[in-house]
Every structure is written in structure tokens, then in C-alpha cells.
Simulated scan of single mutants.
Amino acid sequence: MAAERPEPGPDASLVSLYRWLDTVPLSRPRKNIARDFSDGVLAAEVVKFFFPSLVELHSFVPTSSTAQKVANWGHLNRKVLSKLNLWLPDEMIQALVRSRPGTAEQLLQLLRAKILQRQRNGKGGVGSRQRIRQRWTRAGTWTQAGSALSPRPCPRARAVTVAVPAQPGGGPGDMRQQLADRERALQLARDTIQILQAKVARLEQLLLLKNLRIDDLSRRLQQPQGPRR
């Protein structure tokens, strides 16, 4: 019987990924990454470590049951990953549950990218978004900063807001109507921007998934084939 051929060592991107993962204190030691992450619990712990307010770990049950694994991933997908603009397709969840080699690494690559993006943007919770909206009403305009919107004073916009031209025969009621119309128009623009940002994030996710799949297939093609029996 021929000796078992050793598996090729991980490439640089996987080494970097494993080093990043080693910085996270997981509840159980990492032995076989495909099996370790199959129930979704460790993935929830990774997000919890970086963003504690996004995850309630008691919602995720360590299990060997396929049905419970799928339930864990479904909950993680809806309640946690969606807040990072990440959505796992059903076929990827099934591959994770079945411990298909390479799928856990693909998930972690996606997750790390979204975590780093959120850290760079310094994105906060609901309270931060409320404060931004309140500052906007005083500042007078919006500016794009990464994937989040942040206010920046605009002298021209402020001048228009403060010095509203008086209409002949107009009173306080007319002024309030003009301000209400302006608020509605700005809310519509804000909603449109959020929709476009969500679409861009989805396209980025699909592109990253495609690149990870190409890298995985390339590695498999480069592996030498064992002797045929």
C-alpha cells in the first residue's frame, strides 16, 4: 500500500487568515476547521468578539444535529451577518453544515473582510445613526464617508436654510410647508442612497465569493493527483 501523501501547506492568504483567527478567544480549541465551524457557534463567537452588541451567544446551540446546525446558521444569517451586509446563500450554509473542506475558510475570509470594513468605517449602532440625523438638521447637508453617511457643514446649504426668501403674502404656514417639502425630498434622497449602498455591498460580497471559489479551484488543480489503483 502506498504511503499517504501529505497535504500541501496552506498558501499565504490562509496563513494570514489562521493568524487572524488565533487572535479570537474561541470556546473550544480549533482542531478541524471544517467540523469546528459546522454548527455556526464559533462564527457567532468571532463576531461577538469584535462587536459584542451584535450577538447574543445563548441563541446558538452547540450541536451535531444537522437540523440544529441549519437553524443556527439561519439565525446567524438573519440576525447577525445581515448587520454586516453579509448574506450566506443556502448552498453555502449546506456546505458548512456538511463540513465540506474549504467552505469554512471561505466564510471566514468573507467575515474578516466585513469586520475590517466595519472597523474602518467606525460604524456605530442605532444611537449613532440618530445622532447623525440630528446633526444633519443643524449642518444642512450630507457627505459620503466610506460606506456610512456622515454630516459635513456646507456654507451654501446653510445659507439657503437660514435665509429662506420670503414669499409675497406668505406666512408661518407657508414656511412650514416649504420646510416639510424639503424634509420629504431629503428623506427620499437618503433612502435612495441607502438602497444603492446595500446593492454595492451585495455585489462586493458576490465578487469576493467568486474570487474565493476561483482560488479554491486553482489550488485543487495544482495539487498532484495520487496514483491510480
Rank of each mutant, 00 (worst) to 15 (best):
W87P: 09
W87H: 13
W87E: 13
L88E: 00
L88T: 01
P89I: 12
E91T: 06
M92I: 08
M92T: 03
I93K: 02
I93G: 03
I93A: 03
Q94K: 09
Q94N: 07
Q94D: 12
A95T: 03
A95V: 02
L96E: 00
L96R: 00
V97N: 02
R98D: 00
R100S: 03
R100C: 01
G102W: 02
G102C: 04
T103A: 00
A104V: 06
E105W: 06
Q106H: 11
Q106T: 03
L107G: 02
L107Q: 03
Q109W: 07
Q109M: 12
L110Q: 04
L110A: 08
L110F: 06
L110M: 08
L111K: 02
L111I: 04
R112V: 06
A113D: 07
K114A: 12
I115C: 04
I115M: 10
L116Y: 03
Q117E: 05
R118L: 04
Q119T: 15
N121P: 07
G122I: 09
K123M: 11
G124S: 03
G125M: 13
G125P: 09
G125S: 09
G125W: 08
V126F: 15
V126P: 12
V126R: 14
V126T: 15
V126N: 15
V126G: 13
G127H: 04
G127D: 14
G127V: 08
S128G: 13
S128Q: 15
S128E: 15
S128F: 13
S128N: 11
R129F: 08
Q130V: 15
Q130C: 13
Q130D: 11
R131E: 10
R133L: 15
R133D: 15
R133N: 14
R135D: 10
R135F: 12
R135N: 09
R135Q: 13
R135T: 11
W136D: 14
W136C: 11
T137H: 13
R138V: 14
A139H: 04
A139Y: 11
G140V: 09
G140W: 01
T141W: 12
T141S: 14
T141N: 14
W142K: 13
W142H: 12
W142R: 12
Q144E: 09
Q144H: 03
A145M: 05
A145V: 07
A145T: 03
A145Q: 05
G146L: 10
G146K: 06
G146M: 13
S147P: 06
S147L: 15
A148N: 02
L149K: 07
L149P: 07
S150E: 07
P151K: 01
R152V: 07
R152A: 13
P153L: 06
C154N: 12
P155D: 08
A157G: 14
A157S: 14
R158Y: 13
A159V: 10
A159Q: 06
A159R: 05
A159G: 05
T161M: 06
A163T: 08
V164H: 01
V164T: 03
V164E: 11
P165N: 01
A166I: 04
Q167Y: 04
Q167R: 09
Q167F: 07
Q167M: 08
P168F: 01
G169W: 01
G170T: 03
G170N: 12
G171N: 04
G171F: 07
G171T: 11
P172W: 14
P172F: 10
P172H: 15
